[in-house]
Design a protein around this nucleic acid. Structure first.
Lengths: 215, 215
DNA sequence: CTGACATTTGACCAATCAGTCAAGTTTCTG
DNA sequence: CAGAAACTTGACTGATTGGTCAAATGTCAG
């Protein structure tokens, strides 16, 4: 029969095994969904990667869609964090440098999360369209206001703030989303010690010099 | 029986109907594959969009994979064209401006081609991995050499040429690949008359000022 | 207008898909 | 250590998938 409500697999309270297996499933699902997107991924792939049987997967998540949404939800907050951290009372160039550096590090350490979103957006954002149009839009508008203020004060070159945010997203996430292409062009160099710094220096140089106020 | 070799559906010579229907199929396939990727797309979706029956699809292309590769091949050349057009004997900033402008126009006029590649790369480039590591790599290295020359001559700020190319790809293709996200944030503004110019001005301003030599 | 060939399709197939279920096994609690 | 609940799974289902095939229809040159 029904377990105590707060110990249902989908609920808040979890048993030890639930906590472990839900985490295993979400990690496996991230690896699969981030490569093939929702439609292109199968429960069998996820089950195999998680080392669980397919019915067992569906014991923890009733539907494939539920797994997908759980993975997306888990990574959404993580993804917005750095943008939210931009402070209006900071030094503009330093704030942007910190934001870009943060985003580049996330592309390096969580490339699958980046690819998961890329797949979701390419597919038309069926699962997070509402979130984009509400929370993300509000956050971008807020930070665009901050940047616009810096421009008005002459602390940044005149630039459309929203497009600047797009440019930062694009250049930083590119290293995660297009990693295969980058690896095809640069080879094992990508795994070298200096590569992250090299990429960071290039991106920071282009964008920061691109928005630095010109006398 | 076998038709004359040069009139086989897959061959070079085509009947009138073949030419028409192959084009219809490739256009429908582009629309489907660019949204859901190879694995996430179905022949039924393509057939429905093309207004043909599924067996008829397979009369012109023997396998789903063949349709996919044909669409990719058709768009690959188009995609490299602008990079190849960068000239060593041009004015650096003007050459880059032309390249960025070209890429932005392609993102606007051929967003599906951009998304098709994005999906292919995200999936690990199973179909074009070899091409990336050979042709694209060679082309990038050649143009990187050109840019490196400009830097050496002091006509561009010191910047890693390959990462500059990545940054240009990222910022320009972002408008095609993440259109849904951009639309969620900016709304119908995206359809406005001035939007392409606004985006172009922002991207050009950031990148060109980012690489302009500083005294 | 006719015959050869190109084109189209309904019916079908085996494989894979998401999801169900009843019967098992394991784990936890008192 | 017993009983209850949590967990696991083999076997299954109906739907969808890519792909086949024989038969029917359309096209076009002579």
């Amino acid at each position: 029969m029904d377990a105590r409500v707060d110990e249902e697999p989908g609920g808040g309270g979890q048993t030890r095994i639930q906590a472990i297996n839900r985490e295993i499933i979400l990690q496996a699902a991230l690896e699969v969904f981030s490569v093939h997107g929702f439609r292109g991924s199968t429960l069998d792939q996820i089950a195999a990667k998680a080392g669980l049987s397919k019915p067992n997967l569906l014991y923890y998540f009733r539907r494939k869609q539920d797994i997908y949404e759980a993975v997306l939800r888990d990574t959404l907050a993580l993804w917005l964090e750095p943008l939210a951290a931009i402070r209006a009372d900071g030094e503009p160039i330093e704030e942007l440098r910190r934001y870009i550096t943060f985003k580049l590090r996330m592309s390096r350490e969580q490339p699958q999360a980046s690819r998961l979103f890329a797949n979701e957006i390419l597919a038309g954002a069926p699962a997070i369209g509402g979130f984009l149009a509400s929370d993300l839009k509000a956050l971008v508008e807020e930070k665009a206001g901050v940047i616009r203020g810096w421009v008005t004060q002459g602390r940044l070159a005149p630039i459309d703030p929203v497009h600047l945010i797009f440019a930062i997203w694009a250049t930083t996430q590119h290293y995660a989303d297009f990693e295969v292409q980058i690896r095809a062009i640069l080879g094992d160099q990508v795994d070298g010690r200096g590569f992250p710094e090299q990429a960071a220096q290039a991106v920071l140089s282009i964008i920061l010099n691109g928005v630095r106020p010109r006398a």
